[in-house]
Lab assay of single mutants.
Amino acid sequence: QTVHVKGVQYHFPNPEEAVKFALKVAKDLGGRVEFHGDEIHVE
């Protein structure tokens, strides 16, 4: 599972961890989380 944050990719073997990370980052940055297939983008 890959999380993209402002052009940087973070790889997580566990999808659940990836989602938790993405939600935390989005909250910290005041952004939103978008799901694109296997990828999660924080915009």
Rank of each mutant, 00 (worst) to 15 (best):
E43F: 15
P13R: 12
G37R: 06
E16F: 11
N14M: 05
K20H: 08
Q9Y: 11
G31N: 03
V19Q: 09
P13D: 14
D38P: 08
E39M: 09
D38H: 12
E17I: 07
Q9C: 06
E43W: 14
P15C: 09
H11Y: 14
Q9T: 14
V3N: 00
K27Q: 13
H36Y: 13
E16H: 10
Y10A: 02
H4C: 07
L23I: 13
A26N: 02
F35N: 04
A26M: 04
E39N: 10
Q9F: 09
R32Q: 08
Q9S: 12
G37I: 05
G37N: 09
E39H: 12
E39R: 08
E34K: 12
E43S: 13
E34S: 13
H11G: 04
V8S: 07
T2L: 07
P15W: 15
K6A: 14
A22M: 02
V8F: 10
G37W: 05
P13F: 10
G31M: 13
R32I: 11
Y10L: 04
V5I: 13
L29H: 07
G30D: 08
V8K: 12
G7C: 04
D28N: 09
V19T: 08
H41W: 14
P15F: 15
F35G: 02
E39F: 08
V33N: 01
T2G: 03
H36G: 04
V25Q: 08
V25G: 01
K24N: 10
F21L: 02
I40K: 01
A22Y: 02
V42T: 01
H41I: 11
E34P: 01
K24L: 10
F21T: 02
V8I: 12
Q1P: 10
V19Y: 15
H41N: 04
E34Y: 14
A26H: 02
G31I: 04
E43Y: 15
T2A: 06
G37C: 06
V3L: 02
V5E: 01
E17K: 05
P13A: 14
H36V: 13
V19F: 14
L23C: 11
G30H: 09
D38S: 13
V8T: 09
K27I: 10
H4M: 12
E43D: 09
K24D: 10
